[in-house]
Amino acid sequence: MSKEGEHCYEYPRPSVTVDAAIIAKPAEGKPAKLLLIQRKKPPCQGQWALPGGFVDENEPLDHAAARELKEETSLDASQSGVVLEQIGAFGDPGRDPRSWCVTVAYAALVPSGLDIEAADDAEEAEWFDVRKLPSKLAFDHKVIVRTAFEHLLKEHAGTGELAESLRAGVEQLQGDWERPKE
């Protein structure tokens, strides 16, 4: 019999993380851009990734996504009008070499020109042209980014430069992701 507040299950449970795909709208002849961080620590140290991390105990998922975004990029969702939309859950085996890990992904379309600064476990934070992303993204972020672009195309992009950029980004991200080796 377990103590009050303890849970005993015969089934293993995954860790839960959140990731945020933040896309800046094109402005003044500039392309749409995706916010990425360069990981400071293993696994995937030195690789570009979406801002994200582990969900704290009793923390709502959307709060965790906003917290991680602020911790790693200094971008405060509540103060900058960033509206995070949940776009899916990703839990393919091997997506994180540390353990069985499921991530809940979010996407947001934001105005261009938002200031960012790397912090916490991010070595760098940078906006990338959605048509010219780094050739290798950490974990399974290639699939998450592609899903975010497809979601934004369907829900928000319509026609024009944003739609054209996102379609080119989706095309660039075709194919399988590579399992992290670290």
Rank of each mutant, 00 (worst) to 15 (best):
T73W: 08
W127M: 06
T103D: 14
G113Y: 07
G94Y: 03
S135T: 10
G88A: 13
C101L: 13
A168M: 04
H141R: 03
L133R: 05
E71I: 00
P111H: 05
V102N: 06
K154Y: 09
Q45S: 10
V130F: 00
K142Q: 15
G88V: 06
L114N: 01
L75P: 01
P43C: 09
E164I: 01
Q38V: 06
V55A: 06
H63F: 10
V55R: 07
A89H: 15
H141Y: 09
F128Q: 03
G158R: 10
V143T: 14
R131K: 11
E57N: 13
L162I: 06
L69C: 06
G160Y: 04
E161I: 06
W100Q: 13
D120G: 02
E117S: 15
A65Y: 05
D120W: 12
T159F: 13
G158T: 11
L35H: 03
V102T: 13
L133H: 00
I37W: 01
Q86F: 12
E71F: 07
I144K: 15
G88C: 07
A122E: 06
V145G: 08
K40A: 13
G88M: 11
A89W: 14
K154G: 09
T73S: 10
F149P: 00
G52V: 01
D56E: 15
C101M: 11
S112N: 13
I144Y: 02
G113N: 08
A32L: 03
E150M: 12
G158D: 11
V143P: 01
V82I: 08
L69N: 00
K154Q: 13
E57Y: 12
L50P: 02
K136Q: 15
K136R: 14
Q38K: 15
L84C: 05
C44Y: 02
E171I: 00
L133S: 08
L137P: 01
